[in-house]
């Protein structure tokens, strides 16, 4: 199988934190959601992918090319949104367009105009007067307005209101219509990821602890609600995490391991993340 983005045994060590043997494979035509709590290593992973920091070991390929050797050519096909990083503040939209025209050989003026109009970004306003959401929308427009084949998004939808987020998800869905296009995205707004991602990868303390297709995840996991006595009869191997409350036990379980008559609700990805991470902490 060919992958749009592939990380193999990638490690990076800091004094107080390390990314440990990260393996990620994103097939062409798919959207992968990359989740994990704050400080789990999401942004570090993205920085490694973009060669903003040097990896200690492992290999990373983007669109089939090594991310260090052939990066300049490949960058023409990568669209990136990084949280808080933007154009210098004194520039206006028209000036940004003029600069980008000189950066990307494949810059698409028309598309940029359409997107900025759709996102209602004002032309003659300086970037320093943009709100956080507007800066985000500007970055998204830039990420899409060249010959983009893969989008790498770090918290691209956080800080935006639900309406705009919905609109942006539609833009992403449009983008993914082409089966050679792919998206790798992190977000804390997991409901967004649930709506659009084909795969979910979860990182915790610098290790990948979960990597599955969204459908599989939703099918295999469930939230079991039962009394403490009943809970003791369940095979602990299928319990991924639980919490006690006054009504009994709520547990994240593998559905197909449950025998007998129990109430099992669907688990959202948010449930899966919260319970798994809690379990890992115990």
């Amino acid at each position: 199988m060919e992958f749009a983005l592939q990380l193999q045994n990638v490690s990076k060590n800091y004094k107080d934190f390390s990314l440990d043997n990260i393996n990620i494979s994103l097939p062409y035509g798919c959207i992968m959601g990359f989740i994990g709590e704050n400080g789990s290593g999401k942004t570090t992973t993205i920085k490694l992918i973009l060669d903003l920091i040097k990896r200690d070991s492992g290999t990373i390929t983007i669109l089939g090319q090594d991310n260090i050797k052939d990066i300049k050519k490949v960058k023409e096909n990568i669209g990136v949104v990084i949280d808080e990083s933007c154009f210098p503040e004194m520039l206006t939209l028209a000036e940004v367009n003029c600069i980008l025209k000189n950066i990307y050989k494949t810059w698409d003026n028309n598309k940029f105009e359409i997107l900025t109009k759709q996102f209602s970004l004002q032309k003659d306003k300086k970037i320093k007067d943009y709100s956080k959401g507007m800066k985000m929308k500007l970055s998204i427009a830039i990420a899409l307005a060249h010959d983009t084949k893969i989008l790498i998004l770090d918290e691209a939808t956080s800080g935006l209101d639900p309406l705009i987020r919905d609109e942006i998800l539609d833009v992403f869905r449009d983008f993914i219509q082409n089966d050679r296009h792919s998206i790798f995205m992190t977000s804390h707004i997991i409901s967004d990821l649930e709506k659009i991602c084909d795969y979910i990868t979860m990182i915790h303390h610098g290790k990948i602890i979960l990597n599955q297709s969204t459908d599989e995840l939703m099918e295999s996991y469930g939230i079991l609600k039962c009394s403490e006595a009943d809970f003791k009869t369940i095979n602990p191997a299928i319990v991924k995490g639980f919490r006690k409350n006054s009504f009994g036990i709520e547990a994240l379980v593998l559905k197909n391991g449950i025998r007998g008559n129990f109430v099992i609700d669907n688990a959202s990805i948010e449930d899966i993340m919260v319970y798994s991470v809690k379990e890992a902490k115990l």
Partner: peptide, 11 residues
């Protein structure tokens, strides 16, 4: 504006 980081994601 943390421009350098952003610019390096471009060509």
């Amino acid at each position: 504006s943390k421009w350098d980081k952003y610019a390096l994601t471009m060509p």
